[in-house]
């Protein structure tokens, strides 16, 4: 298919213990992200969804090794790219929003500084211009008083505000083709969760972003996503459109997830 932006093909991997023994954790993972769509990868903790996402950017834990498969992005296998080629893709082409944004931002630099430095890294320009872009990005994710907030440090942000700033950095400062969101709403209050999801959908639509949402929360998925990939114990058990997954789940595990999420009367 020509409108596939990224495809994970037969991807398997394992954790290498100190004594060299391998513990397989990903088994033949296959899925594709269509251009312009929001695809959800859902599954319980430990299902391998985050590990797969981190592998796309080459930031998986050092003990994780690929045993087979490839990840194709615009025709190139990301898993075989060298450090320089990978750096050219990180942030610029594929960017990522992490869980727990307060911890994901550097505690000793102001939020504005961090955004501005990423902007200069990718688009160049003066410090002042970059800071102006940073403040502008904070404003666009509805952070009140962005000039003042830009001068604050991550620990002075609430979890929800920090996640907005993280999204501003990954989506607006980086302006990537593909945005991966790894459990972006986990740990936030329910009301804040829905605000953050609205923001993500809005930004995705307005910027024509392709997004991959990693989550264990099916409630989030139902309202926002176009396609769904269900993972369990390192395997993809079912893929389909959101509508198909929610109305006619094929796999027993998917049905169990749906029942547990209280979305559908069991």
């Amino acid at each position: 298919m020509s409108d596939v932006l990224l495809s994970v093909e037969n991807f398997s991997g394992a954790f290498r213990a100190a004594d060299g023994r391998l513990t397989p954790v990903l088994h033949d993972v296959n899925f594709a992200l269509r251009t312009g769509a929001i695809t959800a990868v859902v599954g319980e903790t430990g299902s391998g969804k985050s590990l797969t996402a981190l592998s796309i950017l080459g930031i998986q834990p050092a003990t994780f090794v690929r045993t087979s498969g490839r990840i194709l992005f615009e025709g190139r296998d990301l898993l075989t790219l060298g450090a320089t080629a990978l750096r050219a893709i990180r942030g610029r082409r594929i960017s990522m929003v992490f869980q727990d944004a307060r911890a994901a931002m550097n505690p000793v630099f102001t939020v504005g500084q961090q955004l501005a430095e990423v902007f200069r890294l990718q688009h160049g320009g003066s410090r002042d211009a970059a800071m102006a872009k940073a403040i502008d990005a904070l404003r666009r994710v509805s952070i009140p008083e962005p000039e003042r907030r830009a001068r604050q440090y991550p620990h002075e942000f609430s979890g929800g505000m920090a996640q907005r700033a993280m999204i501003a950095m990954a989506a607006l400062i980086c302006r990537p083709t593909l945005l991966i969101l790894d459990e972006p709403t986990t740990g936030l209050d329910v009301t804040i969760q829905s605000e953050i999801m609205e923001l993500i959908v809005e930004l995705g639509r307005s910027a024509g972003l392709t997004a991959c949402l990693i989550t264990h929360d099916l409630g989030v998925v139902a309202e926002t996503c176009d396609a769904v990939v269900v993972m369990n114990a390192g395997r993809v058990v079912e893929t389909g459109t959101a509508e198909a997954i929610f109305t006619a789940p094929q796999h027993a595990y998917t049905r169990k997830l749906l029942a547990a999420s209280l979305l559908v009367p069991a």
Binding site: R87, R90, G91, S95, M96, A104, N106, V118, M166
Partner: peptide, 9 residues
């Protein structure tokens, strides 16, 4: 935060 810095390129 170091993982973030790497992910941003």
């Amino acid at each position: 935060y170091i993982r973030t810095a790497i992910a941003m390129g």
